[in-house]
Design a protein around this nucleic acid. Structure first.
Length: 850
RNA sequence: GGGUAAUUAGCUCAGCUGGUUAGAGCGCUUGAUUCACAUUCAAGAGGUCACAGGUUCGAAUCCUGUAUUACCCACCA
């Protein structure tokens, strides 16, 4: 069946993916044939960063192609290869999304209650999960679907609970009241890295407190003030340290102790600070240092508590306006600065203003966990690509404080704790237990109360590499994994945590390499965002231009660690590349006899040797590039091998002199080299090669073949000759000119090829030249044209000669340097020889024109 | 405030350990259509490699400083 004139991805992709999956190629055993007789081969494994089960894949997820490239490459090398997929329940994110669904029905999570809400959100998530997996398939990802894991699967939970149990037994877990970042909407605490800061303008109120004037943006928290602080070095106030001041306030007279603390900056505001330990992280610290009372005036619902007197029940915003107004009215407001700009924390998932609050939380001591993690990174047991992230990871870990692992949202993994609900105080206050049966053993039926808090998402996902492999039974063979490839913005949130957990739980690092990519930007290099309207939907692109086109666009021109920029034009360009590959294949396949079976390619012509040399060089380079995570270079090498070398020169030359074995061999090798990046079009073509017995996906990665440097160089001279003829005939407007030459060997023997490539009318051998000399570094050749037309060309010849002369001077200057290393000298000499040959020809030609 | 990176053609970007007459794709200009591909072919224009110093026989590449941009972290009564 003849191939279509153009490659239509939509016609092939689904079938090919199905073919791969059905063949078992995605499983570690799928490429077993490649290992036959190879002895022990090192396994290769990657755990996919689990995408949100409720979401849609965006351009960032398309970067998983990096993992696919590595997996496909490893597979073709015969390594038992496991790329394990999964999906994340994405606790708070899903909760926010599902609450919106409920809101559309006019309900809130409180209408359902905790357990029913969890069940409904879980069902909702599982229902959506198929969407994400379909999308992962459409990107061509060669994951082992039989190993798919979901973060709430029972086996995963077992491992997460066991880790918690061990940490508790090791004394790493404790419960304590601390100031945390509280989201009043989610009614949960969050870690610092889950916040987003925004710069905003707020009034800065200068309020009177007895003898002091104090600057604050938050007058509504004043009912929680338990001290006044000044800097001990501030001579204006330091004599008051230790005294108690009396002040008029909104709810009547108040008394405050004056404390001295270095935190206070004398130059800011008035140099006096009101201390509210319950609602400000810095004040909390000061409160700890000075043993101050903690008075909570804002509740977990975001409303003021009864301590706020008549302001109780107001929202923070309302209370701020009311207190400011009343302070003004009572003459307690000194003045207001309306131009005060500061940054304010919001919850990154729901966008609600964060309230610092003191609540009871579960904490993980990190000191013992971070030390071996830092050591593993420091010693390069784990290597970062690019390397600069090594330092960032270490810095972050070094500054890491105890981690608040509890959250109060409803959709998450419950912390396996049961509290004593009996009156028997001899029983432990709480126990670690994963089910009620265990609690009953300690407290008796009904004598316990389950913890309602859930784990921070990253507490469980930090265990993903070993939790998944333990669940699938692949731990022994595939842990530690080969590489973790993910977005650089979760370096701190996820990567560092996986390292800590991995070493704690398994005694080994979870992965040997970390490869990080940046955010995918738009065509102008700007971040994609819905509000800017510059978002490129990867699935739209794959259905329009083919998956391979998108994958190539995200590979070539994208450097590790930085975000590439993606545009429709770029994708279009690589769609064209796929089509080029398709047509090259079409040309070759149509040339082959019906029952072609390949034999080892026997190079006959210079062109054969040239392309085999190019092929060998590219194979070597692409192999090295993939192994060094230089995917852009690998992609570029494939691109130019196919287009600039194979299609532009070899195939054109083959029209004059055909060696079908070399053609078939080159095509086969190029398909293999391109396959990890562009799997579909390469497999689609491969399937058209009747003699192939297995699928491309499990074919052997090419060995670097034989090179013929001398012959390749000779053919390069032919290429130079052809290029020079083209340039000169275009400049002179010649159609099918005649070439006169004095080289029986090089030009005479390759006359057909040269004639075809350079579109010559004819070639003629002659000892003596005539017409216009071809301007290249090779045997003499001339375009047979009238002397008068050369006259017009003279000025161009002169400028070219001037250019060559300048170049030669530059080379001479370099050669005059006696400290020049030998290999550079050699190189420079060769360049000089070439340039002076051309210069001589030019000079002679100019002289002959007169 | 601290850190990390970037600054190369009109645009988006390569350029790994210093030695190429500085590259690619897109865009632009000119020409080409029986003979795999117009999703094509041939050719062309276009760059003081941000700036200033320094190291070196030699710097887009290494060092220092400056400017601009982006991102990350911390803090902001």
């Amino acid at each position: 069946m003849p191939l279509d004139k153009a490659y239509d991805p939509s016609k092939y992709e689904a079938d090919i993916y199905h073919l791969w999956e059905k063949s078992g190629a995605f499983t570690p055993e799928g490429n077993a044939a490649l290992r036959a007789g190879k002895g022990s081969v090192e396994p290769f494994s990657i755990i996919m960063p689990p995408p949100n089960a409720n979401g849609n894949l965006h351009a960032g997820h398309a970067m998983y192609l990096v993992e696919d490239v590595l997996a496909r490459y490893a597979r073709m090398q015969g390594r038992p290869t496991l790329w394990l997929p999964g999906a994340d329940h994405a606790g708070i994110e899903t909760q926010v999304v599902y609450e919106r669904v409920l809101a559309a029905e006019g309900k809130s999570r409180f209408d359902l209650g905790r357990e029913p809400f969890y069940d409904a959100a879980l069902a909702f998530t599982k229902q959506n999960m198929g969407n994400v997996t379909t999308q992962l398939r459409s990107l061509g990802f060669s994951v082992d679907w039989s190993k798919f894991q979901f973060t709430l699967d029972a086996d995963i939970l077992t491992t997460v609970y066991e880790t918690f149990r061990r940490m508790h037994a090791d004394g790493l877990i404790y419960r304590g009241a601390r100031i945390v970042n509280w989201c009043p909407h989610c009614r949960s605490s969050f870690s610092d890295i889950e916040l987003k800061y925004r710069e905003q303008l707020d009034p800065l109120y200068y309020i009177k407190y007895g003898p002091f004037v104090i600057a604050t943006v938050r007058p509504e928290t004043k009912f929680g003030d338990t001290a006044i602080a000044v800097n001990p070095k501030d001579d204006r106030y330091n004599k008051l340290i230790g005294t108690t001041i009396q002040a008029e306030d909104l709810l009547g007279p108040v008394k405050f102790q004056v404390i001295g603390d270095d935190f206070v900056a004398p130059e800011f505001g008035t140099g006096v600070v009101k201390v509210t330990p319950a609602h400000d992280p810095n004040d909390w610290e000061m409160g700890q240092r000075h043993h101050l009372e903690v008075k909570q005036v804002i509740g977990t619902d975001g409303l003021l508590t009864s301590l706020a007197g008549k302001y109780a029940g107001m929202t923070v915003a309302d209370a701020r306006a009311a207190t400011a107004h009343d302070l003004q009215e009572r003459g307690l407001m000194d003045h207001v600065d309306m131009n005060y700009s500061h940054s304010v924390a919001f919850h990154d998932r729901c966008g609600t203003l964060i309230e610092p609050l003191v609540t009871d939380q579960w904490w993980l001591k990190v000191d013992k966990l971070k030390k071996p993690a830092i050591a593993a990174i420091q010693s390069d047991e784990i290597q970062f690509y690019p390397t600069r992230f090594k330092k960032q990871a270490i810095d972050w870990l070094e500054n890491l404080h105890d981690w608040n692992i509890s959250r109060q949202n409803w959709f998450g993994i419950h912390i396996p704790i049961y509290y004593n609900a009996t009156t028997d105080t001899s029983l432990p206050e709480y126990i670690v237990a994963t089910d009620e049966a265990e609690a009953i053993k300690t407290y008796g039926p009904g004598g316990y109360e389950a913890e309602t808090d859930v784990f921070d998402t990253w507490f469980s996902s930090g265990q993903w590499p070993y939790a998944t492999l333990m669940a699938t039974g692949d731990f022994d063979q595939f842990y530690p994994t080969s590489v973790m490839a993910t977005a650089r913005d979760i370096l701190y949130l996820w990567v560092t945590r996986m390292i800590m957990f991995g070493i704690y739980r398994t005694g080994q690092v979870p992965f040997k390499d970390v490869y990080l990519w940046g955010t995918v930007n738009d065509a102008a290099g700007k971040k994609m965002s819905k509000s800017k309207g510059n978002v490129i939907n990867p699935l739209e692109m794959t259905s329009k231009y083919g998956t391979d086109a998108l994958r190539l666009a995200l590979t070539i021109g994208v450097t590790p660690g930085t975000g590439g920029s993606l545009s429709v034009e770029k994708i279009e360009g690589y769609r064209n590349f796929c089509n080029k590959l398709w047509n090259v294949a079409r040309f070759i396949i149509e040339k082959l006899p019906e029952n072609y079976s390949p034999t080892a390619p026997e190079p006959k012509s210079l062109a054969d040797k040239w392309i085999l040399t190019k092929l060998a060089g590219a194979t070597k380079q692409i192999t090295k590039d993939i192994e060094g995570y230089r995917f852009s270079e690998a992609g570029q090498a494939v691109y130019s091998l196919l287009w600039n070398d194979f299609a532009d020169w070899y195939i054109e030359a083959s029209k004059a002199e055909t060696n079908i074995d070399v053609l078939a061999h080159c095509l086969e090798t190029i398909l293999k080299l391109a396959h990890p990046i562009a799997p579909f079009v390469t497999e689609a073509i491969w399937q058209q090669m009747a003699w192939q017995k297995q699928n491309l996906i499990v074919s052997a990665w090419p060995e670097t073949g034989k090179s013929y440097p001398a012959d390749a160089k000779t053919f390069q001279t032919i290429i130079d000759l052809v290029s020079a003829i083209r340039i000169q005939s275009i400049a002179l407007g010649l159609a099918k000119p005649k070439l006169v030459h004095s080289s029986k060997e090089l030009i005479g023997e390759n006359a057909d090829i040269i004639q075809g490539l350079a579109k010559l009318g004819s070639l003629e051998y002659s000892e003596k030249g005539k017409g216009l000399a071809i301007n290249y570094a090779g045997p003499n050749a001339w375009l047979d044209i009238e002397k008068s037309s050369i006259d017009d060309y003279k000025s161009r010849l002169q400028s070219e000669l001037a250019e060559k002369t300048a170049y030669l001077e530059k080379l001479d200057k370099q050669l005059a340097n006696d400290r020049l290393p030998d290999h550079i000298r050699e190189q420079t000499m060769a360049r000089k020889a070439e340039a002076s040959l051309i210069a001589t020809k030019l000079a002679e030609q100019i002289a002959s024109v007169g």
